[in-house]
């Protein structure tokens, strides 16, 4: 199994994140971890609860935007961050199972996940994508 990960890349006004993983669900997982890392989310150490959702979209990029937007909503509006995340992607459908905990602190709000130059591609070794967030 090749490593998955994320790193922030410079962007003048907003935030951009490069993510990579050996498979699509790993890429989505990395994107989720990178996003909450950018936001500086701190969770309450106890009080874990379960949260599930499914999404369907026509292409992987739209699915990624919808998935991260859903996490943003849960985190910023329902005040629940994910401590653990399990994902299954089957064609256009994504199933997510989250262990969530109350958010104690968020350093920075993300307004939205954008499609800007978003292209999930296989570079022969791993999936990569660069995601731009409006902040």
């Amino acid at each position: 199994m090749k490593e998955r990960g994320f790193k922030e890349v410079p962007h003048t006004a907003d935030w951009a994140l490069q993510v990579w993983a050996p498979d699509l669900s790993g890429l989505f997982h990395s994107a989720a971890q990178g996003m909450v890392s950018l936001m500086g989310v701190e969770l309450h150490p106890d009080s874990l609860s379960a949260h599930f959702f499914s999404l369907k979209n026509s292409d992987p990029e739209s699915l990624l935007v919808a998935f991260l937007s859903e996490l943003l909503f849960i985190t910023q509006e329902q005040n629940q961050g994910f401590a653990h995340l399990a994902l299954a992607i089957d064609g256009p459908v994504l199933h997510a199972a989250l262990s969530t905990a109350p958010v104690m602190r968020i350093d920075k709000e993300i307004k939205a996940v954008t499609y800007h130059n978003l292209d999930i591609h296989w570079d022969g070794d791993r999936y990569t994508a660069t995601i731009t967030f409006d902040v």
Partner: peptide, 22 residues
């Protein structure tokens, strides 16, 4: 966010070519 998603199929429907999906 809603309409950036909702309008994606419209781009194809109206045969609009864009250099950036945003």
């Amino acid at each position: 966010s809603d309409y950036v998603q909702l309008l994606q199929p419209a781009v194809k429907r109206y045969q609009i070519k864009l250099p950036d999906r945003e």
